[in-house]
Structures are given as C-alpha cells and as structure tokens.
Design a protein around this nucleic acid. Structure first.
Length: 925
RNA sequence: GGGCCUAUAGCUCAGUUGGUUAGAGCGCACGCCUGAUAAGCGUGAGGUCGAUAGUUCAAAUCUAUCUAGGCCCA
C-alpha cells in the first residue's frame, strides 16, 4: 500500500519562487483597478485622523535611493497607521520652481536665452518639470507607495502659486519684509546674478598687493609702549585691488595675537603668526618687535583710507585666519560674504559702487566708469602715488567664473528682500515652537534650534525667471516700493486663475488695482518687481497650500518626515512661515532619516562608482526587497546599501515567504468557521504558540507606533526562524501530516496556524505590501469574507485570553532541555549512530525540578524532541553543574513506513505489517 | 574651520541606571534529512566593543583627545 498517499502533505498554489520583478507590476494593476487608495482614504478611522504631510521632492531627474528610502518609510507609516485604525490621507507633492530646472533649460537654450522673454523661459521650465513629475510619479508608484497620485500637489499649479503669494502677503502685513543691499555673485559680462551652482572655480591670475592703512586713532591709550611712535599703520593684503575703493574696515581676529613691528621709523601692525613671512615678502630684514597684544586691543580704532577722504575702522571677526595675508583683513562689505556679515554686525554701510556692467559708478573718484578688473592697475598706481603700496606681485589662485561665459565674476551688493528674524520677537517665537514639537531622533531639536537661533535674516529674493514673483511694485517717479497686503491678495486671486505667468504677461497697470497712488510722492504709475521668491518659501508654505482648508485637516499636521538635511531646508522654512503667519509650527512631530551611503559608509557618488539605483534592485530582486531593506535598517543614522546587504535581505525575504507558504500549505482544506478548535480544547503546545504570537503582536505594533521598523523586521523574522520554523512547525509536522484530516489534534494545530498566518500577513503588510497581498489571496475563505485587500484590513489586537505566563515559563525550560538534547543527538549523528532524529531514543537521567517537569510531560517528550522514544531514569547525576544527563541510543522497534517513527507495534498487524498502531488507528478512521 | 550625528562579529541589529564568560538572526564551516525540497533541521567557529588617555573596586556603557564617516554651514 502507498502510505504516502494517506498523509496530508502541504498543498498550496502560493509559489515558492517569488518572481517579484514580474509579479509586482501585476499586483499594482490589480490595486489600480480596485482603486485601493480611494478605498483606504474613504475608510473612517476609529482612532481619528493621522496626517503625514509629504515633503515635495524636486522635479528634476529620476529618483535615487534617497527618494526611495524616504517614500518607502512614509508609505510604511501610512499603511501601518491605517491598519492601526487611523484615517489617513496622503497627498504626494513636487517642488517645481527654482534654479536647477531653469539652469537645465538654460543649458538647452544656450545662447538663445538672451533673446527670450521670461514668459517663454517659464513655459519651457514648466514643461520640463511636468515631464519629471510624471517620471518620478511612476517610479514612486512602482515601489508600492499608496497615495493620491492622480491629484498630487505641485508648487507650480495655479492654486498653489496663489497660496504662495497670499502667504507672502501675510508676511508683508506683519511688516516683516524689508529691502537691503547684499553682495551676490554677479557676472558683468552676462549682466546677471549667479547662484552658487552656476559658479565654476578655476585658476586665475590676480594681483597680490600689500597696503598700509595709517592709524589715525591714538593707540597709545591702549598700548602705552607705542606712545613715542608716530607713523603707525595696519598692513592688509588683497588680491582684488579694485575693492579698495569699497574698503570701510579692517578686520582682525579677537583671539589672535598681533604685533607692532618697527622698521625705518615706521610701525607696522599685523598678526604675530604672519609677520615674519610678511616682512620677508616685503623685503624688510631690519626690524624690531615693539610689543605684542591681542586682536581685541585694536577694536574700534580708526585708520585713514589711502586715497579717499574716509576712515576705515578696525573691527573683530572670527573668519580671520593665519593661512595667508597679514591677519588684518581688508573689508569691503559690498564685495564679499564675510565682509558683509561682519559689516552688518558693526553697522557698516553695504557699500558697492559698481554697476551692472562691472563699472565703477560716479560715486567713485578717480576710477568712475572704469571696468573693475581694468581698474586694478589704476588702483595700484594710485596706491603707489600715495605711498600706501608696500608690495605688488601676481598670484595664480582658484577664482569663481561664470558657468555660461566662463569669465571671472565679482561680488556686488544689490538690493534684496529679507524677512526680519528679530522683529516682533519672531525668532524667539520660532524657538519656542521648536521646543514644542517632537523631534525624532531627539537631537533634531538641538540641531534646528541652533540653526534658527543663529541664522541671519532670510533673504527671499532671487534674480530669476522660474518662480513666484515678489508681488510688489515700485513708484516710477520716486522708486518707493509698494508692498500692500490687499494688493498682493488681488494678485493672488489673479494667479489662481491665470497662474503666476500673469505677472510676466501683464503690465503693472493691469495688475495693480485702479486708483492706487504712491504714499511717498503721490505718483500713480508703477513698475513691477522683477525678482522672484526663494523656492524655500514656495515649499515652506505647503502646509497652507495643501493641508489647510481640507476637511478635517488642520495644522499642525501629525508628521513631517524627511532627511536630516531638511533641518536647514523644508522643516526650517515651514517653521518660519508657520510661525510668522499662524503663530505656530505646522507639524506636531518631525522625523528625520539619515542618508544612503555605500557598504563602507561612504556617500554614493558617480566618481567613486558606488552608486546603486533603485531600479537595479527592483529589476533584480523586486521593490519588496528594497522595502525590506528600508525596514531592516535603523534609518535614524546613515543607511548602508551594498550588494551583500541586498543579498542578505533577499534571503530573509525568502525565509518569510517560505514560512507563510508552509502555513498556507498546511491550511489546505481548513475552514476556520467549521474547523476551529476552541481555546480550551487546544493542545498545550498550540496554546504556547498562541501565547508567543501575542507577544510578537504587541512588540510589532509598538514598534510601528514608535517608527522603529527594524524592530518590526527582526521580531517577525526571528519569530519565523526560531519559534516557528526551527521549533513549532517542525514539531507539528507529525501531527499535521499523519493524524486524521479532521481530527481534533490536527484541527487544533490548524486553528493556531491560521491565527498565526493572519497575524503575520497583517503585521508585515506595511513593509511587504505585494507579498502579503499575494498571501491574502490564498487564505482559507472565511464566513463574512475577508477585506478585499490586506491593506484594507486592521491589525489584530492582542488577545489577553491567549496570554499564559506560567505556561510560557514551563515551555521555556522545556525548550532549554530540548537544546541540550539536540547537542547529544548531534554527537550521536557525528558518530554515525543515527541520521534522522527519529532513529533515536533519548534517555534522560537525573532528579530535581527539571526532572520533575519532564515527568509531567513524559508522553509528549518524543514529539518535543522529534525522536521515537524518550525514557526517564531517576538517578544521581555525576557531573557537577548539570541536573540532567542526556544519552542517546538507537530507537527500539521498527520504523513505521507511514509516520517514520520507530515503534514496537510495527509488524503486529498482518494486514498492515509496516506501520505502527497510531497510524493503524488513523487509517481505520 | 564651526554646529549636529555615527562607530559593537563578514552583514544587519540587541546590549536596561557602569557590575559574571558582550547577545540574536543572517552568512560561513561541518553534518543530517529528502514528506516545506532552487526547501527544512542540527551543531560549531567568528568580536582587544574605531584608537588612545583618564575617572572608577569595576567601562561597550562616563570624560577628553584623536581617527574614519555622514548632514548642515563657513
């Protein structure tokens, strides 16, 4: 007789091979047809709403691993929150304006750009952004991310553009916007401002000059040693002589030591650490150090400008270094970033007498009308004439050049718009809000606090085309800027219909309401501002443009979640806009993740050749494995990815898949409504499994709650490997395969397997949406039906009835003994005494607590150890540290052909001489 | 150069308020099984806890410095 046909081996249509790269797109189509996101969105949550507000990626290029990481984390959270009973609503967004897109368009246009109106450039930028929104949307959807992909928010949509302008109007209303000069990088050949990304550094030959500024203050008040000295000067060094006319100050470091050096009747002041080198350069060998003193001594003393009727004041700045020069830094606040910063601190004028074309204005005596670079020579000549020039050389150094015309560029102060950080207690309010928000990890609070605390006023203007115009006008006659909230709101209304292009398409008269006159001069004609807003303002107000006004959604929203670079970026601009216009941060919690780095912890870059693209992983392993990677890594730090890591995870994936497949296979024919065994009727090991399941259930749900997905992964994985595969399921095989199909024993096991499978499937659904959905389709049908998708179901809750701590304690001890038995079995296997553990009889001798426990379970022990027989012998054990002694000998009796256990009853029945009495009973029915 | 962060087996992670011999899974090695089979089971070998110095009876854990790396500034 073929006894194999009489046992119930696992049977399921759920394939062992995942074939994810092919299967995932099919599941995506199924979801699409089902309209799954709409179904989720429409489901009311008994726990209330949970709103994760998407941070908009920039609509440029394909998605990279960082994008994938970010969106997958968000998706895990959304799915888990829904399953935990919340109502969710996820609107993905894109950041569409800004320089990188305009720059790309510029590149394709090349020289043609000059002749194009902003409107035409904007049209091309919009097309460019639209293209990448589509591309990225498809790439995000492929990852299995659920959201309202048909109605995402775009910062360039008309209503969003209108929102930006309205929020800007609120800033104006609060009187926090002002105009001030600020040095920016300027190409006078192209007559345009340049952003950092448009600047190329290459070698350039510049003059290198040493200049003395004679001291006019009486330094002997602070340094009596110099009382007798008359001819004292401060020595500066610069490579841009043309900025000397813009000199307003000389900056020294407060913590550096300075010296007064006497030579040929005059005294030079410079940093101690640089004076020897400098004197050598100047060719002065004969000198004497009169005194040394800290930089602070010099503060507020005054020098005379070498050729302009003006003083140059001595100030302190931390940016002064001993790398080059003299330690006394020529400071022209209109011509350099650091000069500007320190100039602001000392209330200096941001003086920049240079026009669009790089020529000195008529403000500048001697050189007006001259190009600044050509004026270098004239300035040097002038310094020579006045005797201020100590040395002139040439130097080759790295210098910024324009990306388009390749000519060297200059720093030039122009009028810019700013948000005042310290007016009306704005900064302090923002800092208070920082403290009220929950930052995960906690150190995010320190990070952003420090940034807000120390940041300068927010420069919100850009000299660009692709963005939202700063909706102010200038009086044609007196240049007074007209910035009024009611006018701005009117502009916003127009943008809502026509888009921000209206600003460029229409004249000032069309845009400005009739009857407006200049409050300064009464003039009635105006010009439009040509600057646009910083794109951080665009995305910063997304909470207002996207979230506010939605039914049931109010700020602060529950969660913002981005990379840790956004402390400076989006979290920051959202905080400032929220606090300014609504007096609160727009989020309750901010979660940050680290950056994706390679297997060695190095950042991914083309030059290092260590870049892994999401598509590489998806095509080879499936998006599911990428998602598992996101879940398995602790994303609060940098996240490593390498072929090995992905390989490991795809193996872990297979383990989960196989475990579920085994569960499904053993539930073949099981009808939960008809066949379930009540808790009290369950076998004890089955109750143990239920207890364990409750444990992981609460652990996993807690881990989702605290956004610790790697705990989700390890908890489930370890449960599958240790508790299920290596123990429970292995032990269960005999019962499942060999007992009668509908016996209580077998149904008891299946009842629990069913519970476990449902729980595992649901618990892992946020991480592995495709696979769990596939499993969902193979579940034994239940009365009343399951939800159409696992993603429409809710997490199971912990059932207190299933928790039995005493039972768990006993089983913990039994499992420890099982471990010892395994060691002895393995030793016997090495000696070739046995192969399969069923060939063994285990003999345990000893006495005491554990031995008594074994006595209680004597009948069950062969099952527990998966051996054919177990004998217990009460005896004193010789070994000191052991209470029990385990021995193994060959099982007695014959091997049952059906269940493979060895038993003395095999051979006793003449009709079935090769099977044991248990199997005989089963077959007898 | 400054601010914030990270460093535990080949890989991914645990390691409570300092307290026995630093844990787990994977991978690896060796074996078993062939009724989860491109599966399953068992056993085992892997770590100077980035380095150095200190505090302490006692340090992976606290302090300082350094090294390597990440983000943001300059």
């Amino acid at each position: 007789m073929d006894y194999k046909a009489t046992i119930q081996l696992p049977k399921t249509g759920f394939s062992q091979k995942a074939n994810l790269a092919q299967k995932e797109p099919e599941i995506l189509i199924k979801w699409e047809k089902m309209g799954i996101y709409k179904l989720i969105e429409q489901t009311r949550g008994e726990q209330g709403k949970y709103i994760l507000h998407d941070g908009p990626p920039y609509a440029n290029g394909h998605i990279h691993m960082g994008h994938a990481l970010n969106k997958i984390i968000k998706d895990i959270i959304n799915k888990a929150k829904f399953m935990a009973g919340y109502e969710i609503n996820y609107i993905p967004g894109w950041d569409c304006h800004g320089l990188p897109i305009e720059h790309e368009v510029d590149k394709t246009l090349g020289a043609k750009k000059k002749g194009l109106f902003p409107l035409e450039i904007r049209k091309r930028c919009r097309e460019y952004a639209e293209k990448f929104v589509q591309i990225q949307r498809d790439e995000f959807k492929r990852l299995g991310v659920f959201g309202d992909w048909e109605n995402p928010y775009l910062t360039m949509s008309f209503d969003y553009q209108a929102s930006i302008v309205r929020e800007f109007g609120k800033f104006v209303e609060k009187d926090s916007i002002y105009r001030r000069k600020k040095p920016i990088q300027w190409c006078f050949t192209c007559r345009t401002a340049l952003a950092e990304a448009e600047v190329e550094y290459k070698d350039h030959t510049s003059p290198s000059i040493y200049v003395k500024f004679s001291l006019t203050s009486d330094i002997s008040e602070v340094l009596p040693v110099l009382k007798k000295e008359k001819n004292i000067s401060v020595i500066i060094w610069t490579t841009t002589p043309w900025t000397i006319p813009g000199n307003l100050a000389i900056c020294v470091h407060p913590d550096l030591v300075y010296v007064a050096v006497k030579t040929k009747g005059e005294v030079f002041i410079m940093a101690e650490g640089l004076f020897k080198r400098t004197m050598e350069t100047l060719g002065v060998n004969d000198y004497e150090v009169l005194t040394t003193f800290p930089g602070t001594t010099l503060e507020k003393l005054r020098c005379r400008h070498p050729f302009i009727e003006r003083d140059s004041v001595l100030i302190l700045g931390g940016h002064v270094t001993l790398d080059t020069g003299t330690g006394c830094v020529h400071t022209a606040p209109g011509h350099g970033q650091e000069d500007y910063d320190v100039g602001l601190t000392y209330g200096l004028d941001i003086y920049s007498p240079v026009d669009n074309e790089g020529k000195f204005t008529e403000d500048v005596e001697f050189f007006n009308g001259q190009n600044v670079f050509r004026a270098n020579k004239a300035v040097v000549q002038k310094l020579k004439e006045t005797g201020a020039l100590l040395k002139e050389e040439e130097i080759v150094h790295s210098y910024p050049h324009c990306w388009r015309c390749k000519e060297p560029i200059i720093f030039r102060a122009t009028e810019q718009w700013f948000v005042a950080m310290d007016k009306n207690g704005f900064r302090d309010k923002a800092l208070d809000e920082v403290k009220r928000v929950t930052w995960i990890p906690y150190w995010g609070e320190d990070r952003i606090y420090g940034m807000v605390e120390n940041r300068p006023d927010w420069c919100i203007s850009r000299q660009r085309s692709w963005g939202i115009p700063i909706a102010v006008f200038y009086c044609t006659s007196c240049r007074h800027p007209l910035a009024k909230k009611d006018i701005i709101d009117k502009i916003a209304d127009r943008f809502a219909c026509e888009g921000a292009d209206a600003w460029f398409a229409r004249s000032a008269e069309e845009l400005i309401p009739p009857g407006i006159t200049c409050p300064m001069c009464g003039g009635s004609t105006f010009e439009k501002e040509t600057d646009i807003l910083d794109v951080w303002f665009d995305s910063g107000v997304s909470w207002a443009a996207v979230m506010e006004g939605r039914e049931g959604v109010a700020i602060p929203v529950d969660l913002y979640l981005e990379g840790s670079d956004q402390h400076r970026g989006w979290f920051h601009s959202a905080l400032l806009t929220g606090v300014m216009t609504r007096a609160k941060a727009p989020y309750k919690t901010v979660l940050t993740h680290g950056f994706v780095v390679d297997g060695e912890g190095k950042k991914m870059s083309k030059t290092l050749g260590n870049v892994i693209h999401p598509n590489d992983v998806i095509n080879k392993f499936g998006a599911e494995v990428l998602r598992l990677w996101v879940a398995a890594e602790d994303y609060r730090e940098d996240i490593r990815i390498s072929p090995e890591i992905i390989q490991r995870l795809s193996e872990a994936y297979r383990r989960f898949r196989n475990t579920c497949r085994f569960l499904l296979g053993n539930l073949d024919g099981f009808n939960p409504d008809r066949d379930s065994v009540s808790y009290n009727e369950l076998e004890e090991i089955d109750r143990w499994a239920l207890h364990k399941l409750q444990h992981i259930l609460s652990r996993v749900i807690d881990a989702y709650e605290s956004f610790e997905f790697h705990k989700v992964f390890y908890t489930i994985h370890n449960f599958c490997v240790l508790d299920l595969s290596a123990f429970y399921l292995d032990v269960l095989k005999d019962r499942l395969y060999c007992e009668k199909t509908d016996s209580r024993l077998r149904r008891s096991a299946q009842t629990v397997l069913y519970e476990i499978l449902i729980a595992l499937t649901k618990l892992f659904a946020p991480v592995l949406p495709f696979t769990t959905e596939e499993i969902w389709g193979f579940l034994p049908p239940k009365k009343g039906g399951q939800e159409k998708s696992v993603h429409l179901s809710r997490f199971p809750s912990v059932n207190p009835k299933y928790i039995d701590v005493e039972l768990a304690d006993r089983w913990e001890q039994l499992l420890n003994i099982r471990g010892e038995v395994n060691q002895v079995l393995e030793a016997a296997r090495r000696k070739r005494d046995i192969g399969s553990s069923l060939e063994a009889e285990v003999v345990i001798s000893g006495r005491g607590k554990h031995f008594e426990l074994l006595r209680d379970y004597e009948v069950f022990l062969p099952t527990l150890f998966i051996v054919s027989q177990v004998s217990l012998e009460e005896a004193d054990v010789v070994q000191e540290d052991k209470e029990l002694e385990v021995k193994v000998r060959n099982a007695s009796g014959e091997k049952c052909e059906r269940c493979w256990n060895y038993h003395h009853s095999v051979g006793e029945n003449p009709h079935h001489p090769t099977i044991c009495e248990r199997c005989l009973t089963v077959l007898a029915g």
